[in-house]
Design a protein around this nucleic acid. Structure first.
Lengths: 368, 368
DNA sequence: AGTTAGCACTCATAAATATTGAGTGCTAAA
DNA sequence: TTTAGCACTCAATATTTATGAGTGCTAACT
């Protein structure tokens, strides 16, 4: 595999350069490198080694008389093979757990809190993704009649998600009408993907609704919107201001572009959602295919339970982020969340400590 | 009133300085001022006038040999008395309308779109606030049973808002149990403010629920959360990256603080929600009481319909923002939104063009 | 062979210095 | 009351001059 041609000494040197650059953000030269622990040869030797590492593409030189800086490939190699496990203290771990547990069991809240924690603990930007209802199909409709101007339309989809929408009607309708609508929806719309909600469906429904036909079209529009919009889920960012701490983002134009992309959300969502892995992902610079993130790296991990992705927690920061710490932080956060989830349902089997059973409370899917 | 002591010429000069500073962001001196239209006296005279304006507190001098810059008071005076109406073209207005109308009738979507528009049209940061359910009390509970592990709890509160929560139960419960819960809630919790949801309420409910008592406590927790959390509503920001265009935010530390505050959301929400006025508000610099916004100004206007605030649209930018343009943009956006709302319910009276009637579709209140 | 000391060279950064010019206040004449 | 004129100020820009961290290369040294 790549990098196998590196001697141990080269690996040592590369590691030292990467770590020093992560810490200081500046090019590092042979002399300072010599002083570092783990290195025991003269600056001249280091220079030779560095020249070769540069040749191989692991290092870069901003200009002739500057030190070396790890290239993207250098970081990749570091992350893949040189990274030393960052050990969190028991205390820190306990605190993560405590803070996460102190929140309601609502997944949204937990994810958001985890994102905040990720940001606060690493000093980069934290991100939390609530997964979308990709290619969902409604398997059942329910309605809850409130008054003649209001009811709630509830859609249960294939993945077991529940979407509910408050419908306000300007024309008063009776409870019977709403029930009829519900029945009509269950008879005609169940199982249809969003793009099958065409005119013929509307016409059929309108026929069934008779005198109340006029509410069909907007309802179908709502269903359609609920199924399609925001398909990629929702992205929460925390600690965007942290980006400003890093020299890497001093160019206001680049930073502006990045902020714009982050605000758009869809690119990042795509990035995170596209990941096939259930394990932690590290995308360094241009590996992420988001142009504006060539200066950045993103680390994220999905929280999977019973085969379902409940969310994604991650960190976004400069190329020279402290990968060891970030990786460990994300792992711990995900572990902690999974732990909390397990705890909630560990008591599920009936007859066992029933007085302590807690329902999982999950915020419904909404679509802003 | 303040500023009444200013001669016409002084006003002219102040106006010219403010406008020039808005445009260029730099101190302006007597000579360049002289060339501007509307000014017809020598630079020496202008210097004298400027000295007096500075004395009065409307201008500031960054250093001895620089031109003058409007002070916060200067901007205030400008906004209050010197501002010339910025005329939007018919075309622009039509376009706002078109874009806003193209969205679903969901208020959330409209507000978000308006915020985006505000940002795009002014090149500052747009903001949209969805009002909170302040001191709400549930007037009715409804439930919709989905399956033995899931149901939706719907709360209708005094202001007519509908909050719905998806409840997931690890212990299977029958539809009857959920109905019993619903009845129990309606019997015991209706009309109680969040802080009255104490142990005695829980005990009473648990008694009524008998064997299913264990679901009471988490349900009450959910109700409590739904009533209290996010009381201030939700804030959406758009075009944060635009801030970077302005020299005023070049200090990365200040910018970081501002971003942090914006992310926190609560300060801005408080600011916007506290405004008593139903008219457009302009807060300049320290007028806003948010420390970190001493360099910034914020313009916002609530969208009020039938005495209820449906949302707030605004713009946040540097002190030297183009107030004329921003004010007009916000007014137009609010006008357009109100127009759309009116249009939806203009057809409400029965028997009139019924086939065109559209229910208002409103996203339910959620709480992320 | 691989390693290291030594040396000439490079070049970004920082410090020291000079130049410029927009802007001021003040005075005296119009 | 207004304005032309003048000496003065001082941030911003440009110019010059160190400084020194860093390099590559060669030749001596294990």
């Amino acid at each position: 595999m790549y990098g196998s041609e590196l001697s141990n000494r080269k690996k040592q040197i590369l590691k030292a350069i990467v770590e020093s650059h992560i810490e200081l953000g500046e090019p590092i030269g042979s002399k300072s490198l010599m002083q570092l622990p783990g290195i025991s040869c003269s600056s001249a030797t280091i220079r030779n080694e560095m020249a070769e590492l540069e040749e191989l593409g692991y290092l870069e030189q901003p200009h002739t008389s500057a030190g070396r800086v790890p290239s993207q490939l250098g970081y990749r190699f570091y992350v893949d093979q040189l990274l030393e496990h960052y050990a969190m203290t028991k205390n820190e771990i306990a605190q993560i757990d405590r803070i996460l547990k102190s929140k309601t069991a609502e997944l949204d809240q937990i994810l958001l809190t985890a994102s905040k924690l990720a940001s606060a603990m690493t000093n980069y930007t934290g991100l939390a993704v609530k997964p979308g209802r990709s290619s969902a199909v409604v398997t059942r409709f329910e309605t809850a009649y409130i008054d003649e101007h209001n009811f709630v339309l509830i859609m249960i989809n294939t993945t077991g998600n529940v979407i509910s929408k408050h419908i306000r009607m300007t024309v008063p309708k009776s409870q019977e009408t709403v029930l009829k609508l519900s029945a009509a929806l269950n008879a005609n719309v169940v199982g249809l993907p969003a793009d099958a909600l065409n005119m013929s469906v509307i016409l059929r429904l309108e026929e069934e609704m008779g005198a109340d036909a006029e509410i069909v079209s907007p309802i179908i529009k709502t269903v359609y919107t609920a199924l399609t919009e925001n398909d990629g889920g929702d992205l929460q960012l925390t600690g965007i201001g942290n980006l400003l701490h890093y020299r890497d983002y001093e160019n206001p134009e680049q930073l502006g572009d990045l902020l714009g992309t982050l605000e758009q959300k869809d690119e990042i969502l795509k990035l995170v959602s596209d990941s096939p892995s259930e394990d932690i992902s590290v995308l360094i610079g241009s590996e992420s295919s988001v142009k504006v993130m060539n200066n950045s790296a993103i680390v994220f991990k999905p929280i999977v339970r019973e085969g379902k992705t409940l969310g994604v927690i991650g960190v976004l920061g400069p190329l020279r982020m402290d990968y060891a710490k970030v990786l460990e932080t994300i792992e711990q956060l995900c572990g902690s969340i999974t732990g909390i989830m397990d705890e909630h349902s560990a008591l599920a089997p009936p007859g066992k400590n029933n007085d302590k059973i807690k329902p999982d409370i999950k915020d419904e899917n909404d679509d802003n």
